[in-house]
């Protein structure tokens, strides 16, 4: 049963711990025991504020953490059943760009300014697909057309500075999809773009996912983006996942105070919704997490228990997990909305 389930997942991350060793012997636990999976064809959104560890999580999957000072100290990352953390550098380079494509937040700086767009797309194809230069450029034209460039033959000879931000992000998507990856990691792909362009890029990503039959790990702090494309959502805070649910479930029934804060509303048992200006305070630095629940200092519902120990990520129902004492059996008050008796604690192994 378990084996069967595991092979169903495209990406399975278990108990990932990525620490940064800082000067003076301190350790910043940027990613602290994160477990999740992505199924084939699924779009998983990873949501959180700056500093919550979501980008480090995605870079860990690519094994692109600068080392030193960063280090993946523990955990397992399996792509299609293959453990990535034990691969040699050479083997890992065959995964990057080939099995996993990645696009970044800043389309203005993510492309090398001194090489043509064609060169930068072809490079990946020459490397992974062993194409000749000519074949690779022909494929580059094709890819550019797929991502929506009308004059693709001209674009391959142009330099990044000649394109607008949205066009560059399209070119980045063309690079990421060039080798037909199983997984596309998009790290804040629309943050730096105009609102109108954002929608186009999101549509394009979904279209590409379907066309190339891949999955998406979407990293964002923008819940609007999540609502538009995600199948499932994970909310990250202080290097840990604090809530995980199907997208509709999360939007209609957010549990964790941080999630509700992000959504700009407070849950109310009577169903009333009040506007909330913002979550007070900022994400604590990863070397100075508070004892107990990491969100406790900013939480409106903080209880004594919260400052003493950190709650586990527990199921409130089969499709919804949350890390909060409000919903733990002992915490008492929150769970009854769902009326589930089958709550159990999920511990990573």
């Amino acid at each position: 049963m378990r084996v069967l389930q595991r092979s169903e997942h495209l990406l399975e991350v278990k108990d990932l711990k990525t620490y940064f060793h800082m000067e003076g012997g301190r350790t910043a636990k940027a990613v602290d025991g994160v477990s999740f999976h992505i199924d084939r064809g699924e779009t998983l959104a990873l949501v959180g504020e700056s500093g919550s560890g979501k980008s480090i999580t995605s870079l860990s999957v690519m094994r692109l953490i600068p080392q030193p000072p960063g280090d993946i100290v523990d955990g397992s990352i399996k792509l299609d059943g293959k453990e990535l953390l034990t691969l040699s550098d050479r083997e890992m380079r065959k995964v990057r760009g080939n099995d996993i494509g990645m696009i970044f937040q800043e389309p203005m700086t993510s492309l090398n300014p001194v090489f043509t767009i064609g060169n930068q797309i072809a490079e990946t194809l020459i490397k992974h697909k062993k194409m000749t230069k000519k074949q690779a450029y022909a494929k580059a034209v094709e890819l550019l057309r797929v991502v929506g460039f009308a004059r693709a033959e001209e674009i391959i000879h142009e330099y990044p500075h000649q394109l607008s931000g949205g066009m560059r992000q399209r070119a980045m998507i063309a690079i990421a999809m060039s080798c037909d990856p199983k997984l596309l990691i998009a790290d804040e792909p629309t943050t730096a773009l105009d609102v109108t362009i954002q929608a186009q890029i999101l549509d394009l990503m979904v279209e590409m996912k379907e066309k190339f039959d891949s999955s998406i790990l979407l990293i964002t702090h923008d819940l609007g983006v999540v609502a538009e494309v995600a199948d499932r959502v994970m909310v990250m805070y202080g290097g840990q996942i604090v809530e995980e649910a199907k997208a509709e479930e999360l939007f209609t029934n957010p549990k964790h105070p941080y999630t509700t804060g992000l959504m700009g509303s407070i849950p109310n048992i009577d169903g009333e919704v009040e506007r909330l200006e913002s979550i007070p305070g900022t994400v604590p630095p990863a070397h100075r997490f508070p004892e107990g629940c990491r969100f406790a200092p900013r939480c409106k519902h903080v209880m004594e228990q919260c400052t003493q120990s950190n709650p586990e990520l527990s199921e409130v129902n089969r499709k919804h997990k949350v890390r909060c004492y409000l919903y733990e059996p002992a915490g008492g008050e929150g769970g009854h909305q769902n009326g589930t008796d089958e709550r159990k604690t999920v511990r990573s192994t």
Binding site: G101, M102, E106, T109, S110, L111, N112, F115, E123, T124
Partner: peptide, 23 residues
């Protein structure tokens, strides 16, 4: 950022250094 992109493409260290960085 573009060096990170080059690494994310799976290019070899030499290609990242001598092509993308050096140029």
């Amino acid at each position: 950022d573009f060096i990170r992109t080059a690494q994310a493409k799976g290019l070899s260290n030499n290609s990242v250094l001598y092509k993308h960085t050096l140029r």
